[in-house]
């Protein structure tokens, strides 16, 4: 029997956050293309960034890949192609630990840099700070979960959290699975959804501009003159209602 609180936490909150995530991105892309950037601070400081940024980014990319595997692919599928529980576990833990540790180390360097390098700190907005706090919470909780569930407990998230997570997208809701998950996983999930809701309003949007098209496009880009630029079209005689 699921309680109202469980439904709220494991059904309502995810849907609200995902809606904000999608609509927020559409809105931001529509109205703030100019603000859609990495807001790199490399010109201010390079020594720490050169270390921290690749560690963090490559780490988090592997973590992402791990999540796609763990959350997105049902256990029955991996077993069907012959990956045994043990092998899967071994891979997840070994790659996951390396990726997780490098993410956390990279992130620590980057946060230390943000705080201590004058120009970088001055260029940090409130939104950045909020985002950093939530992101760090998600990552730390995730790493703690991995450690705890491997060393102490035997919670198999692929029978719990993963099923619940996939259910959100298939509209087959299993709040009871989350309610039964260890508190660490619960917190990690909630923090992650908070991050999703925050995502479109932070610099994290740069994730969606990963320039993969660069690999295939010709080097030199030609483009016809844009009538909107130098010589503008006549404006409407009326103003849009804001």
């Amino acid at each position: 029997m699921t309680t109202g609180a469980e439904v709220l936490l494991w059904v309502v909150v995810p849907y609200v956050c995902l809606t904000v995530f999608v609509v927020g991105h559409l809105w931001r892309y529509r109205y703030d293309k100019f603000g859609w950037t990495t807001r790199s601070s490399q010109v201010y400081e390079n020594r720490l960034l050169r270390l921290g940024s690749p560690l963090f980014h490559f780490g988090i990319l592997f973590v992402l890949a791990g999540h796609v595997m763990g959350l997105g692919i049902p256990k029955s599928w991996t077993e069907f192609v012959g990956i045994s529980e043990g092998l899967y576990h071994f891979m997840a833990v070994s790659v996951g630990t390396v990726a997780g540790v490098s993410t956390v180390v990279g992130m620590s360097i980057l946060i230390y840099r943000r705080r201590t390098v004058g120009p970088v700190f001055t260029a940090t907005t409130k939104m950045d700070k909020t985002m950093y706090a939530v992101l760090a919470t998600v990552i730390v909780l995730g790493l703690v979960n991995t450690v705890i569930s491997n060393v102490f407990g035997h919670y198999d998230y692929r029978d719990g959290v993963s099923v619940w997570f996939r259910g959100i997208f298939r509209f087959s809701l299993h709040p009871e699975l989350m309610a039964a998950a260890p508190i660490g996983f619960q917190l990690h999930a909630l923090a992650a959804f908070a991050l999703f809701a925050l995502w479109p309003f932070t610099r994290l949007v740069h994730v969606f501009s990963a320039p993969l098209g660069y690999l295939t496009r010709p080097y030199i880009v030609y483009r016809s003159r844009d009538d909107q630029l130098g010589s503008r079209k006549p404006r409407r005689g009326w103003e849009k209602v804001k």
Binding site: W36, T37, Y214, V221
Partner: peptide, 24 residues
């Protein structure tokens, strides 16, 4: 990002500020 382009009419090289993502 392919944000910098050479104008085909007069060859002026410009950065499209809406497409630049700050990769440097």
């Amino acid at each position: 990002s392919g944000a910098i382009y050479k104008r085909s009419e007069d060859g002026i090289v410009l950065v499209d500020q809406d497409r630049c993502r700050g990769w440097r």
